[in-house]
């Protein structure tokens, strides 16, 4: 049973007289407990796909079923609530609030979920320890390295205990070592918490760390590969 499935997604933009199709009838299905990587060149529509799969943006056509719920049947408020309860997000640019310490960044979404301050602090500390930042909790983003910032961002997504975790180019502003730590953390989250982790990236280093790689180009999925334990790409299973 897939935890996230999209059918016939179409999306395009009109700029002046020019119509650009970003997604052309794209379908996919993603399983829980795995790190799924959507790989493809820049501008192939990966980020747009992610924002539709997470309910941030409504597609021109097609449907998304997440955790058994049709995302675009309800209104914007219903999708906000769904994301608040079930999803986490990690971005290329970290997008941390400059004024908040690592612990406060992580506690922030819990406040909006109605978790009280004491519980939020306990969960925030535990999550920061999980991503290896136990001794960095009280530092501001300006005092953290790029890799540490991205781990704070991961902790901020993870602290909600989401069933769905989306990551948009999480390693592109990191060096090799930090990129490695981040992608390993994402994979461990998928395996240990049975979370559906969906990561989009054009970074070829990530391919060997994913459980499954979907190749995307020109708004459609061109290839689907399962990765074996030794990091080799298994035979192509199907082409949706």
């Amino acid at each position: 049973m897939s935890s996230l499935a999209a059918t016939g997604l179409c999306m395009g933009y009109t700029s002046g007289k020019l119509r650009t199709e970003i997604l052309r009838g794209l379908s996919l299905s993603v399983d829980a407990g795995q790190l799924t990587l959507i790989a493809g060149p820049s501008g192939c529509g990966k980020s747009t796909l992610l924002s539709i799969l997470s309910g941030l943006q409504r597609p021109d056509a097609g449907s998304v079923v997440a955790l058994g719920e049709d995302l675009f049947r309800g209104d914007r408020y219903a999708r906000d609530r769904f994301r608040l309860q079930h999803t986490g997000f990690v971005f290329q640019g970290f997008n941390l609030f400059p004024a908040l310490t690592a612990l406060e960044q992580v506690m922030l979404p819990l406040g909006y979920m109605g978790v009280d301050d004491v519980a939020a602090q306990a969960r925030g500390r535990a999550t920061l320890e999980e991503v290896g930042l136990a001794d960095r909790m009280h530092l501001l983003p300006a005092e953290l390295s790029g890799g540490e910032k991205q781990r704070v961002a991961i902790a901020r997504a993870l602290v909600k205990r989401p069933e769905l975790l989306f990551a948009d180019e999480p390693t592109s502003s990191l060096d090799a070592a930090n990129g490695q730590i981040v992608i390993d953390t994402l994979r461990r989250i998928a395996h240990e918490h049975a979370t559906t982790v969906l990561c989009v990236s054009h970074d070829p280093r990530l391919v060997t760390h994913a459980d499954r790689v979907l190749e995307m180009e020109d708004g459609v999925i061109l290839g689907d590969h399962r990765i074996t334990n030794n990091g080799a790409m298994a035979e192509e299973e199907n082409t949706p």
Binding site: L56, R81, G88, F89, F91, N95, P109
Partner: peptide, 18 residues
């Protein structure tokens, strides 16, 4: 100037009202 951070919170499910 903080629009990206707010957009991130929105992505995490914090409503536009909040």
């Amino acid at each position: 100037g903080s629009v990206r951070e707010y957009a991130t919170l929105h992505a995490l499910g914090v409503s536009l009202g909040s």
